[in-house]
Design a protein around this nucleic acid. Structure first.
Length: 469
RNA sequence: GGCGACAUAGCCAAGUGGUAAGGCAGAGGACUGCAAAUCCUUUAUUCCCCGGUUCAAAUCCGGGUGUCGCCUCCA
């Protein structure tokens, strides 16, 4: 069984075969660091974090590159508003990016290149395009000439003239073709600028990604990923620049996630209907946001609402509970193996679940189905844990299974907090004493107090258990 | 105008030819001092509508309806 991936450029699922053996290079367009990112952006980060983890888990040697756009119109405008320099602005929001993304369980990329650190390479690429007659200079601005690239429109699935007819923007008279786009922008007074053969200026948006992707991953990327609103013009333009310059295929697979909607409408900065991860983190565990994103297929649009997040939270709690219970039971189990007579059956079932997980994830990363597999194991595990004498091997292997699959989806990592543990244990002892004396009022008061501390206490047939909310 | 996506129970959602996964919420039961957690049972004769192909369709084809998106910066 091989992995199948939906390729935007082909508009269908294809077998995933990397360009070069076991190595997989993934480039994902990163944020423009002029503000906190919103939960629509977060979906992209989470989705491609899981895809990257999964490919690695399946044995591929993955290099994941995600850039920061740290120079463009929005950066300059925002820096001016805040009265700081563009690099200061970038620094502030790059730091915020890493904080928010860590909370969401997204691993840092292998390389996080910044646009401003690759100006030289961008100039070289623009020069190469100019020499090939695919780009032209008009008074310090350099444009890419779209008709010079025959396959222009392939990714968008639209011929050039159709793209023009729908255009909503006034055409710049200096351009040879309405869809020609800027590679190098002439400096305006007060703007940051770099020297170039065309005078002082700064790079256009699309050229950045062409340079930063191929610099770290080679001329042909295995996967180029990004948000769906980047397909046109950003990715179409990147493709034209890169393939125009190298004559080679730029990306073997183009992957795009679905939108995150709010009130049935795309969440976006320009519509102003966005919520940042920064804000939402105060109210809801970022882990729940992650679970919510993964509970639908990555290419389908999902609608965001407080109610849906609540549903996600309940679902995730169920899974977290079973993992918690496994750890708790394992702690208390004697070293020698229990005598559960269906141990062999349980271990075989675990293997079957693992196969199922791989099967659904191999099919274009179906995390919704992957989670369904976990819910099935959860039910069977909960039943098994009611066993008076569970096998230590079964419990340990089941826990290992959850942690292993969790390492792909980004859940179930153990958390340590010893100081709190001591305090909680003390309170539990007091409560047990009260219960023994049938002093239910005191017992319940202690339980309420723990609840305030974010600790949920349960009296199960197997004994007292507590967990952090 | 062109290109595209989506429509499955109260809600979320998987499933692309073989007779409707999973989760949340609800109901009943078991367990329990209570609560929580957990387990069992239960909730779609049916997958937006109308035609067609087929032994067989939620899945394929044609037509329609509705919602959303891209063709400007956006993930």
């Amino acid at each position: 069984m091989t992995i199948r991936v939906y390729n935007t450029v082909k508009r269908k699922k294809e077998e995933f075969i990397p360009v070069s053996g076991n190595k997989v290079g993934i480039y994902a367009c990163g944020p423009t660091v002029y503000d906190y990112f919103h939960i629509g952006n977060a979906r992209i980060f989470i989705v491609f974090d899981v895809i990257r983890r999964y490919l690695r888990w399946r044995g591929y040697d993955v290099t994941f590159v995600q850039n920061f756009t740290d120079i463009d119109d929005k950066m300059i405008k925002r820096a001016n508003e805040l009265g700081i320099t563009v690099p200061e602005l970038a620094d502030r929001y790059i730091r915020a990016y890493f904080e928010d993304v860590e909370a969401l369980g997204v691993e840092p990329a292998d390389v996080h290149p910044k646009a401003t650190e690759h100006i030289t390479e961008m100039i070289e690429l623009i020069q190469a395009l100019t020499e090939k007659g695919m780009a032209y200079d008009v008074d310090g601005d350099v444009y890419f000439h779209t008709p010079a690239f025959k396959a222009y429109g392939e990714l968008t699935n639209q011929p050039l003239d159709e793209l023009i007819s729908g255009a909503r923007v006034d055409v710049d008279e200096r351009k040879k073709h309405p869809l020609d786009f800027v590679l190098w922008k002439k400096q305006k007074p007060g703007e940051p600028a770099w020297d170039s053969p065309w005078g002082k200026g700064r790079p256009g948006w699309h050229i950045e990604c062409s340079v930063m992707s191929t610099k770290y991953l080679g001329d042909t990327l295995d996967i180029h990923a990004g948000g769906p609103d980047l397909i046109f013009p950003h990715h179409e333009n990147e493709k034209a620049q890169s393939e125009g310059a190298t004559g080679k295929q730029f990306a073997k697979y183009w992957m795009h996630a679905g939108y995150l909607n709010i009130n049935q409408e795309k969440m976006s900065k320009s519509l102003g209907n966005f919520m940042t991860v920064r804000d939402i983190r105060q109210k809801i565990a970022p882990e729940v946001v992650r679970f919510f994103m993964l509970s639908a297929h990555y290419r389908n649009p999902i609608n965001y609402s407080a109610d849906l997040l609540q549903q996600a939270q309940s679902g995730l709690e169920r899974l977290n509970n079973v993992v918690y219970n496994l750890r708790d039971v394992l702690d208390k189990l004697p070293e020698e193996d229990g005598v559960s007579n269906d141990a062999a059956e349980r271990l075989a079932a675990l293997d079957a679940f693992r196969d199922r997980f791989i099967e659904v994830m191999d099919d274009d990363f179906n995390t919704a189905d992957g989670l369904a597999v976990l819910f099935d194991i959860a039910r069977e595990t909960n039943t098994y844990l009611k066993n008076a004498n569970p096998s230590r091997t079964v419990v340990a292997k089941t826990l290992a299974f959850f942690e292993d699959v969790g390492s792909v989806l980004g859940f179930f990592a153990p958390k340590e907090d010893d100081a709190l543990d001591a305090r909680v244990n003390e309170m539990i002892e007091k409560r047990q004493a009260a219960r023994k004396a049938k002093d239910w009022a005191t017992a319940d008061a202690i339980r309420d107090e723990l609840q305030e501390m974010g600790i949920i206490l349960e009296d199960t047939p197997q004994g007292i258990r507590w967990r952090k909310k």
